[in-house]
Design a protein around this nucleic acid. Structure first.
Lengths: 93, 93
DNA sequence: CTTATATTTGACAAAAAGTGACAAGTCAAT
DNA sequence: ATTGACTTGTCACTTTTTGTCAAATATAAG
């Protein structure tokens, strides 16, 4: 599961952009951009902001995906994950 | 919000145990035990296992609280947290 | 088959974050 | 004042994360 990366690739390809081009605009190595798309590295908040601009996407939407990935990193392979998530949800807002 | 620590303190006090006593049994410094209860440090999985035994608690129950704390660490102060959590919940199991 | 371009991978140093102990501190009760 | 329980600050150490570089692997075109 790699919410953000999957979405980034969609956005980039639908606009006919190369990794190199996006990477240059957000000022990171092409290799890192590749890793972000494949979920091998997690983006920084700053990356999200810049990427949203470059790919004409909504920053909040990307942030949701980014957070979801980070939550998944925490609960992956945890049998009690569902209960923990429900507990969090119950106490949200 | 400090799910696990709050529960640990409840359990310990309800059994009339001292920090020192619990700490000794799980083989950590009293200071660390204090921090775990106040949420200043996050426990290790191994700690959870030992603590469950010492405090006669259910390991899975404590694990849920422990995971919830870790999820909170990720989403704290994030305005989009609720949407991220809902996304995770939707795709659970 | 060679070349050219796009993407991926592995390895690495640097940076950041996390860890737990120790010593010193506070606080309450005596 | 002393004692006992707990808390706090600091620190060295370890682990994890980060992003780049260079090399490797596609993929497509000639």
């Amino acid at each position: 599961m790699n919410y953000l990366g999957t979405r980034l690739r969609e956005l980039r390809e639908s606009q006919g952009l190369l990794l190199r081009q996006v990477a240059a605009q957000i000022d990171v190595d092409t290799a890192l951009m590749s890793k972000l798309e494949r979920g091998e590295r997690r983006a920084q908040r700053e990356h999200i902001i810049k990427i949203a601009t470059v790919l004409n996407a909504n920053e909040d939407d990307l942030t949701v995906l980014w957070l979801a990935d980070k939550i998944n990193d925490v609960i992956q392979d945890e049998p009690m994950a569902n209960k923990a998530v429900k507990l969090i949800e119950k106490n949200l807002k």
